[in-house]
Simulated assay, not measured.
Amino acid sequence: MQIEFKATKRVEQGTGASRRLRRAGQIPGIIYGSGEAQAIALDHNELYHLLRKEAFHASILSVNVEGAKQTVLLRDTQWHPFRQQVLHLDFQRVDASQKIHLKVPLHFANGDVSPAVKLGGCMISHTITEVDVSCLPGNLPEFVVVDLANLQAGESIHVSQLPLPAGVELVAHGEGDPVVATAVTVKGAVAEEGAEGEAA
Protein backbone atom coordinates (compact mmCIF):
# COMPACT_ATOMS: atom_id res chain seq x y z
CA MET A 1 0.00 0.00 0.00
CA GLN A 2 1.49 3.31 -1.09
CA ILE A 3 1.08 6.29 1.25
CA GLU A 4 -0.13 9.41 -0.54
CA PHE A 5 -0.28 12.99 0.73
CA LYS A 6 -0.84 16.45 -0.74
CA ALA A 7 1.42 19.46 -1.14
CA THR A 8 1.31 22.87 -2.78
CA LYS A 9 4.05 24.73 -4.67
CA ARG A 10 5.89 27.22 -2.52
CA VAL A 11 6.91 30.46 -4.27
CA GLU A 12 8.11 32.57 -1.35
CA GLN A 13 11.28 31.30 0.28
CA GLY A 14 13.51 32.39 3.13
CA THR A 15 13.23 32.47 6.92
CA GLY A 16 10.37 34.98 7.07
CA ALA A 17 8.28 33.09 4.51
CA SER A 18 8.89 29.78 6.33
CA ARG A 19 7.84 31.35 9.64
CA ARG A 20 4.59 32.63 8.09
CA LEU A 21 3.89 29.17 6.66
CA ARG A 22 4.37 27.52 10.05
CA ARG A 23 2.07 30.03 11.74
CA ALA A 24 -0.56 29.09 9.14
CA GLY A 25 -0.26 25.37 10.03
CA GLN A 26 1.96 24.50 7.08
CA ILE A 27 5.41 22.88 6.82
CA PRO A 28 7.98 24.11 4.30
CA GLY A 29 9.60 21.28 2.39
CA ILE A 30 11.62 20.43 -0.69
CA ILE A 31 11.63 17.70 -3.34
CA TYR A 32 15.00 17.15 -5.01
CA GLY A 33 16.80 14.66 -7.26
CA SER A 34 16.54 13.88 -11.01
CA GLY A 35 15.53 17.35 -12.17
CA GLU A 36 14.97 20.71 -10.56
CA ALA A 37 14.45 21.00 -6.83
CA GLN A 38 10.87 22.00 -6.02
CA ALA A 39 9.93 23.98 -2.91
CA ILE A 40 6.63 22.79 -1.42
CA ALA A 41 4.30 23.45 1.50
CA LEU A 42 2.53 20.64 3.38
CA ASP A 43 -0.27 20.46 5.92
CA HIS A 44 1.32 20.14 9.37
CA ASN A 45 -1.52 18.11 10.89
CA GLU A 46 -1.57 15.54 8.07
CA LEU A 47 2.23 15.10 8.00
CA TYR A 48 2.59 15.03 11.80
CA HIS A 49 0.29 11.99 11.92
CA LEU A 50 2.00 10.33 8.93
CA LEU A 51 5.41 10.78 10.56
CA ARG A 52 4.22 8.74 13.54
CA LYS A 53 3.78 5.72 11.22
CA GLU A 54 6.84 3.53 10.85
CA ALA A 55 6.01 2.80 7.20
CA PHE A 56 6.22 6.50 6.28
CA HIS A 57 9.97 6.45 6.98
CA ALA A 58 10.74 3.28 5.01
CA SER A 59 8.35 3.28 2.05
CA ILE A 60 8.03 4.72 -1.42
CA LEU A 61 5.64 7.67 -1.02
CA SER A 62 3.39 9.47 -3.47
CA VAL A 63 3.14 13.26 -3.13
CA ASN A 64 0.38 15.04 -5.03
CA VAL A 65 1.67 18.54 -5.81
CA GLU A 66 -1.39 20.43 -7.08
CA GLY A 67 -2.57 17.47 -9.16
CA ALA A 68 0.85 16.24 -10.35
CA LYS A 69 1.92 13.08 -8.52
CA GLN A 70 5.57 12.38 -7.78
CA THR A 71 7.17 9.27 -6.28
CA VAL A 72 9.49 10.15 -3.42
CA LEU A 73 11.36 8.96 -0.31
CA LEU A 74 11.49 10.86 2.97
CA ARG A 75 15.14 11.83 3.44
CA ASP A 76 15.20 14.29 6.36
CA THR A 77 12.89 15.69 9.05
CA GLN A 78 13.67 18.73 11.17
CA TRP A 79 11.78 19.04 14.47
CA HIS A 80 11.42 21.96 16.85
CA PRO A 81 13.83 21.45 19.82
CA PHE A 82 11.04 21.15 22.41
CA ARG A 83 7.65 21.55 20.72
CA GLN A 84 5.85 18.76 18.86
CA GLN A 85 6.29 20.74 15.65
CA VAL A 86 7.82 19.70 12.33
CA LEU A 87 9.95 22.54 10.92
CA HIS A 88 11.05 21.18 7.52
CA LEU A 89 10.87 18.04 5.36
CA ASP A 90 13.19 16.84 2.59
CA PHE A 91 12.01 14.36 -0.03
CA GLN A 92 14.00 12.69 -2.81
CA ARG A 93 12.45 11.75 -6.15
CA VAL A 94 12.57 8.06 -6.99
CA ASP A 95 13.31 6.55 -10.39
CA ALA A 96 11.82 3.04 -10.74
CA SER A 97 14.91 1.89 -12.68
CA GLN A 98 17.50 3.20 -10.20
CA LYS A 99 18.49 1.41 -6.99
CA ILE A 100 17.75 3.22 -3.73
CA HIS A 101 19.55 3.05 -0.40
CA LEU A 102 17.37 3.25 2.71
CA LYS A 103 17.19 2.21 6.36
CA VAL A 104 14.47 -0.41 6.93
CA PRO A 105 13.10 -1.26 10.42
CA LEU A 106 13.49 -4.72 11.96
CA HIS A 107 10.42 -6.48 13.40
CA PHE A 108 11.29 -9.02 16.08
CA ALA A 109 9.01 -12.08 16.18
CA ASN A 110 8.58 -15.14 18.44
CA GLY A 111 10.88 -13.89 21.20
CA ASP A 112 8.43 -15.04 23.89
CA VAL A 113 8.45 -18.65 22.59
CA SER A 114 12.21 -18.97 22.03
CA PRO A 115 14.06 -21.59 24.13
CA ALA A 116 16.27 -18.78 25.49
CA VAL A 117 13.25 -17.10 27.12
CA LYS A 118 11.04 -20.11 27.92
CA LEU A 119 13.75 -22.47 29.18
CA GLY A 120 16.82 -20.35 29.76
CA GLY A 121 15.27 -17.47 31.70
CA CYS A 122 16.89 -15.02 29.29
CA MET A 123 15.89 -11.61 27.99
CA ILE A 124 16.27 -10.79 24.30
CA SER A 125 18.45 -7.73 23.78
CA HIS A 126 17.76 -5.92 20.47
CA THR A 127 21.17 -4.53 19.56
CA ILE A 128 20.03 -2.82 16.35
CA THR A 129 16.52 -1.96 15.22
CA GLU A 130 17.08 -1.12 11.54
CA VAL A 131 19.34 -2.13 8.66
CA ASP A 132 20.59 -0.36 5.54
CA VAL A 133 19.42 -1.96 2.33
CA SER A 134 19.86 -1.32 -1.37
CA CYS A 135 17.27 -2.32 -3.98
CA LEU A 136 15.04 -1.12 -6.78
CA PRO A 137 12.05 0.91 -5.50
CA GLY A 138 9.60 -1.86 -6.42
CA ASN A 139 11.44 -4.36 -4.19
CA LEU A 140 11.68 -2.19 -1.08
CA PRO A 141 10.36 -4.08 1.99
CA GLU A 142 8.49 -2.09 4.66
CA PHE A 143 10.38 -4.07 7.29
CA VAL A 144 12.57 -7.15 7.77
CA VAL A 145 11.44 -9.89 10.18
CA VAL A 146 13.91 -11.26 12.75
CA ASP A 147 12.57 -14.69 13.80
CA LEU A 148 13.71 -15.49 17.34
CA ALA A 149 11.83 -18.81 17.62
CA ASN A 150 15.00 -20.98 17.72
CA LEU A 151 17.27 -18.67 19.71
CA GLN A 152 19.04 -20.50 22.53
CA ALA A 153 20.51 -19.03 25.73
CA GLY A 154 23.83 -17.30 25.03
CA GLU A 155 23.25 -17.23 21.26
CA SER A 156 23.04 -14.20 18.97
CA ILE A 157 21.51 -13.48 15.58
CA HIS A 158 23.75 -11.59 13.15
CA VAL A 159 22.91 -9.30 10.23
CA SER A 160 24.12 -11.96 7.74
CA GLN A 161 21.40 -14.34 9.04
CA LEU A 162 18.49 -12.03 8.22
CA PRO A 163 16.16 -13.32 5.47
CA LEU A 164 15.92 -10.63 2.80
CA PRO A 165 13.32 -10.50 0.00
CA ALA A 166 14.48 -11.14 -3.57
CA GLY A 167 16.38 -8.22 -5.07
CA VAL A 168 17.26 -6.67 -1.70
CA GLU A 169 20.88 -6.43 -0.55
CA LEU A 170 22.36 -5.38 2.78
CA VAL A 171 24.62 -2.34 2.79
CA ALA A 172 27.58 -3.17 5.05
CA HIS A 173 29.21 -0.52 7.22
CA GLY A 174 32.74 -1.26 8.36
CA GLU A 175 34.13 -4.66 9.24
CA GLY A 176 32.45 -7.74 10.68
CA ASP A 177 28.92 -9.05 10.95
CA PRO A 178 26.94 -6.91 13.43
CA VAL A 179 24.77 -8.57 16.08
CA VAL A 180 21.03 -7.93 15.71
CA ALA A 181 19.72 -9.67 18.85
CA THR A 182 21.26 -11.59 21.77
CA ALA A 183 19.77 -13.85 24.43
CA VAL A 184 21.05 -12.32 27.67
CA THR A 185 20.85 -14.24 30.96
CA VAL A 186 18.90 -12.27 33.58
CA LYS A 187 20.90 -11.67 36.80
CA GLY A 188 18.07 -13.01 38.98
CA ALA A 189 18.10 -16.30 37.08
CA VAL A 190 21.87 -16.65 37.59
CA ALA A 191 21.52 -15.94 41.32
CA GLU A 192 18.76 -18.57 41.64
CA GLU A 193 20.89 -21.19 39.87
CA GLY A 194 23.82 -20.35 42.15
CA ALA A 195 21.65 -20.70 45.27
CA GLU A 196 20.34 -24.07 44.06
CA GLY A 197 23.91 -25.23 43.48
CA GLU A 198 24.95 -24.23 46.99
CA ALA A 199 21.92 -25.99 48.52
CA ALA A 200 22.85 -29.17 46.67
Rank of each mutant, 00 (worst) to 15 (best):
Q13T: 12
V63D: 00
E198H: 13
G167K: 14
P178Y: 08
A17P: 05
E175G: 07
A172Y: 10
T15M: 13
V72Q: 03
F108E: 06
G174D: 13
P105E: 08
P178N: 11
I40D: 09
G16N: 10
H173L: 12
L42F: 00
K118Y: 03
G154C: 04
N150A: 13
V179E: 14
I60G: 04
Q78E: 10
I100N: 04
N150K: 11
S34A: 15
Y48R: 03
Q84G: 02
N150L: 12
P165I: 10
L73G: 08
T127I: 13
R52L: 11
G121Q: 02
R23H: 07
G33S: 14
G25M: 03
P178M: 10
V159C: 06
A149Y: 01
S125K: 14
V131H: 09
V190C: 06
L42W: 00
E198I: 15
L106P: 02
S97N: 13
L151W: 05
P28Y: 01
V117H: 09
L140G: 03
D177M: 06
P105H: 13
R10A: 02
G154N: 04
H158K: 14
A17G: 05
I40C: 11
G138D: 13
L87V: 02
P178D: 11
I40K: 05
E192Y: 10
I100C: 05
R22N: 04
R83C: 01
L119W: 03
P105Y: 12
I128S: 08
N45E: 10
A96M: 12
F143W: 12
Q84D: 15
S62W: 00
L136E: 10
A39D: 13
Y32C: 10
S62P: 06
K53L: 12
